[in-house]
Amino acid sequence: VSWRSSLPPSERPGERRTAEMKKLYGKDAAMIQGMEAAMQLTFDRNCDKKQPKYWPVIPLNL
């Protein structure tokens, strides 16, 4: 039995996100979710690889 099965369905983060996307985008939800996942993956991978630092160090818009 996987650890997932002990969680009530509504507590699974992936499902919650999918339900939100469905509400926002209707029948296009899966496609938009796929496009967003690809973009976030690029962002995460670039950050892992390049280790960018915030510029400026202190936010301008305080």
Partner: peptide, 19 residues
Amino acid sequence: FQVSDLETPLGVQREALLR
């Protein structure tokens, strides 16, 4: 935003994150 070769007033920062 993740960017490269950021031309700042104080020189070029090779890799940067903008808020």
